[in-house]
Simulated scan of single mutants.
Amino acid sequence: MDVPPVNTSVSSSHLSLCPSLATRLLLPSAYALLFLTALPGNALSLWVFLRRIATMSPTHVYLCHLSVSNLLLSVTAPFLAAYYARGWAWALRGVLCQLVLHGVTPVLHINVYISILILTWVALSRFAALIRHTHADRPSVCATLLPRAFFTRLTEAAFASRVCVTVWAVAVGGVVPVTVYYSVNEARSSEGAGCAEVCYNPVLEIGGSVSTTMVVVPISVFFMCYLLVIMSYMTVLSHIRRSRRNTHVTTSKRLLSRVLRNIVVIQVVLSVCLLPYNIFRPIFMSMTHHQDPPTFSPSASICDDCHPMSVFVEVKNALFLLALLRGSTDPVMYVLLDKIFRHQTFKLLRCNRGNRGGDNDGKPARCLVTGSAGLRSDQQVEGTTATATGDFSQGSFL
């Protein structure tokens, strides 16, 4: 390879990303943990939604689709663990590299933006339940500005199913064309670039001009959704203050506190897992666009020089991991968000533990509720109890 003159600028694609110990050890370990926790957790959640809950509420529909998305994410986790452990040694045209590039990358971004949109719709459906079934000394501003039918639709399971289909279509339709263009056109620009012909290289990790610019759209969508959740939270707080004057409406107060808690849970998930990545991503884009061309030192080979963005690439990957780790914690969020899911999950876990250990008399325990018919009867009894106590918040609204 010819050595460029002193202080001669070279293309950044000719430089190597230098993965640190954190990238080669911590990220693979974290993705292995993601696989071991997200796969069984979301599989159990999906089983509970489809087989243990007879009457699906809008929240159940949304969380069921989120579980499917998380299961797809968990399947890709082992490939990501291998990529960060050995991607710097894989050939760019190798099978594993091409699998990560063409298969894993679209699934990851589809999962992230499906989760953002679905969590936003969960918050809106809870907010609609509050508007329709609570009382205050005066109606909410949202109730006066928006048509009543809008809040009715948000609390319908059929409408939630149509929303989820649309969310999948938007996420797949928005992510796949960009990733296809990126993998077919921009990623090929690193071929023939000497030491950059490895899988973990600047072109694949930083992206080209077109794919980097297109990231502006999903980032804007995230902040719009985040703003909607914050507005829902503020409206619920205002509604609670107005409802405190109606001291005799205890049911409404229970519903208000539960809706507030659920929206806070969603806001925490968005803030902790997804907000840091979406804040850093535009900063990262700006840094790549305004980066000065790297210069070559004649005392070493080009391949021995580290790309100036190596550290920032690792920060980006760490924050993206934080966004994906949500797939492991989502089953815990389901338990906090939905009382029926929590009840059925704990019942199923207690039943399985009883079947393994047996009772005190040495006789094996049995699950008394099996099949959809038994589930309907069980939930009808719970619904009757809820009606008798006046707590309708245990029904399909929440």
Rank of each mutant, 00 (worst) to 15 (best):
G390T: 07
R148G: 12
S115L: 01
L50R: 12
S396D: 11
Y84W: 11
K347S: 15
N360Y: 06
V48W: 00
L130D: 02
L124V: 12
I230Y: 05
R261L: 10
Y182K: 13
P4F: 03
E197H: 02
P177Y: 04
V172N: 03
M287A: 13
G362Q: 07
H289L: 15
A129R: 01
L324F: 11
L36R: 02
L270Y: 01
H133D: 14
F151A: 09
L80I: 09
A323P: 05
V107R: 05
A123P: 07
H102Y: 13
D359N: 14
P106R: 08
V236A: 04
M214H: 01
P364R: 14
A30W: 00
S377T: 12
S29D: 02
S220A: 15
V332E: 04
V221M: 09
R52G: 00
V61M: 02
M224I: 15
D304K: 10
D378R: 03
S238I: 01
I118G: 03
S45N: 09
R188C: 13
Y334H: 04
T166I: 06
P218K: 08
A386V: 06
V68F: 08
S67F: 04
C199Q: 05
H307S: 15
A43V: 11
Y181W: 14
V198A: 07
A365S: 12
P5A: 11
T212P: 01
A54S: 14
A38D: 01
C199V: 06
I279W: 10
L270R: 04
P294A: 08
Q267K: 04
A30V: 09
N111C: 12
E382H: 05
S125R: 08
G194W: 03
S29M: 12
V236R: 00
R356W: 10
S189C: 09
A77D: 07
A89G: 02
K339G: 13
W88M: 03
C195D: 12
E314A: 11
R52V: 01
T250V: 15
I283M: 14
T385E: 09
H109Y: 15
A386S: 14
Y277K: 05
D359P: 01
V198S: 13
